[in-house]
Design a protein around this nucleic acid. Structure first.
Lengths: 340, 340
DNA sequence: TTGTACGCGTTATCAT
DNA sequence: ATGATAACGCGTACAA
């Protein structure tokens, strides 16, 4: 029950239990090869001394760590924490720890995290990168670190990735709005350099074109970041339009933007969905929880995490591993924000 | 630019650069003691071979890790990710990595995470425990691991903690409602075994008593978990009451419950705040972003994380460290959900 | 069944 | 300024 800072090692345990360090190690790693009485004595000694196995030494010797890591783009966005939850479950099932690191969208911090993680020799690295095209990722993979890109696409087949079909998602959203009778729709999102945003808009345009509606009636409002605040700003711009020119519906590139828009619209006295219908993206819990429950395009978030984990573990342990790009199918969840 | 799975070590770099491993180590740790030309040669070799310093070996030798860890109670709750953000900043500033682990409220998973982290010899452990009274925490601290309890209180002074004065928070919320003229108020939260919930309600009752209002007009609705879903259920119960007996205001033990309540109330046709005023707790971003922006009791979340980090680092490096229990002061942020 | 001894990759000390 | 070498704590052949 005692034990102090100078941490106690197998050697100390061995001395206290009157056995050799080899036996202590066996108690730790192959308990069956140790006679029960000896084992008890050793375990008692470990408890008494407060022995804590040194993972640095263990993994140095063993050559591999018992941990996975996920570098998140934004821990404040429930979408990513749900993905993380899926990874967490998979890691737990595989007997591994999961370290979550948050880049907060900052490339610098992301690089630091990745560097440390690589030095830690984690078994595998899952990442939603700030910039999916960054060559840094190739360098990491080239050094042999199992790597899976989460919720982003990378051209080529340098590594595994899991993502959702954003073009389809955009299409589903706008088809739904057209079905509901809308003929003038706003697309709100940005920056357009984010592949996902571009894809969602592309799908939206495709649906619009197929319905033979005039391109000019699909109004793009570009925002700087996918946040609630930007959603509010977009709402102000929208509310400022003369009611004749104002879209009757908006498709937002994610739920945060949609929630901001919903709030601003409500504040400006626009009734949702009567005067303004809103579709979000991601279907985070807060979308369903909004005062006017939000119609949203749902992505299989936990599934994304589960599959990403499976891929990274395969790459870590299967010599015949083949990189795969998994694309999941999104699904529209219609709620009050579009259902009159 | 090459480099393969069998990871390259200082030895390989030394050979490639035609120097001794001591010199390579010096390039890594005290570059100034190495002549510029030699240094360049070594650095070139490191890059060519794709050398990645092995942190296990480094920390085994050095005896300490370059990382902090925060074991979160619920990564899906924005409150905790904000706290984590504060810790992240502090860690970054101290040149440390931060590993976020999520227990998701499960004691079992929490124990596993803590065990691994202790084995990793992280420099310090921050934790919002599932059960603040658990003796496991004492055991960890007894073994010499710097430990700080975040957002929970533990009787006694066995370790550092940072928390917010929940009694005061509850008082602020209810005083505000009384100020607004409410004379029949619901307290929604639970389970009561959570110290925070109990404290917030205690503060609420104190404010009520000081205003000399009849105790029976402070109605407690106990919920099973502090989630949006439970908030909705509470809303149903509330809406089911005859309007004479129905409270005109509700104080929810956190924002998730408040958002659920807001949604249900809206769906049931209750106007907020006219027929039902709502106060939440935590002031997460989604509280301000709600269609009817939520009045809430704000906790200094990032500050909580920053101070917790400072405490754990002090404990890790200052031999004269004294355990401290920091209590922060909450603040009421009044918004439309209570302002007629 | 238990003990001995070596090596994992790095750092730091001490020579040179 | 650079090189040789002994730890750090653990796991694992191999020997007993």
């Amino acid at each position: 029950m005692a034990g102090h800072s100078p941490s106690v090692s197998v050697k100390d345990v061995a001395a206290a239990a009157g056995v050799s360090i080899g036996t202590v190690s066996n108690v730790l790693n192959r308990p069956d090869r140790v006679a029960a009485p000896t084992r008890d004595r050793v375990e008692r000694a470990m408890a008494d001394l407060g022995f804590v196995r040194n993972e640095s030494a263990r993994s140095l010797r063993a050559g591999s760590t018992r941990a996975l890591a996920y570098v998140m783009l934004d821990a404040g966005n429930p979408f990513f924490t749900d993905v993380a939850e899926g990874i967490e479950r998979a890691a737990e099932h595989a007997g591994l720890s999961l370290f979550l690191c948050n880049s907060g969208g900052r490339a610098r911090r992301e690089a630091t995290h990745v560097e440390h993680l690589e030095q830690q020799r984690v078994q595998g690295l899952l990442i939603t990168p700030v910039d999916p095209e960054s060559r840094t990722l190739d360098a990491i993979a080239a050094r042999g670190m199992p790597l899976v890109i989460v919720d982003r696409i990378r051209k080529g087949h340098q590594f595994c990735s899991v993502a959702v079909d954003d073009v389809l998602g955009g299409r589903l959203a706008v088809e739904h709005l057209i079905d509901q009778g809308h003929r003038r729709v706003a697309l709100i999102g940005g920056p357009l350099s984010i592949g996902q945003v571009a894809d969602r808009f592309e799908g939206a345009r495709a649906a619009w074109a197929e319905a033979r509606l005039p391109p000019d009636d699909l109004v793009v409002i570009v925002v700087e970041t996918l946040t609630v605040a930007e959603g509010r700003h977009a709402g102000e711009r929208l509310a400022g339009l003369p009611s004749g020119r104002r879209p009757t519906a908006a498709f937002c590139a994610n739920d945060l933007v949609a929630l901001g828009l919903l709030q601003q619209a409500t504040a400006a006295g626009l009734r949702v969905p009567d005067q303004l219908a809103i579709v979000g993206y991601d279907d985070i819990e807060f979308a369903a929880a909004a005062a006017v429950p939000l119609t949203s395009v749902r992505q299989p978030r936990q599934e994304l995490g589960r599959v990403a984990s499976a891929l990274v573990l395969d790459e870590a342990s299967n010599p015949g591993h083949q990189h795969q790009q998994m694309i999941f199918t999104p699904e529209l969840v219609a709620r009050a924000s579009t259902l009159g």
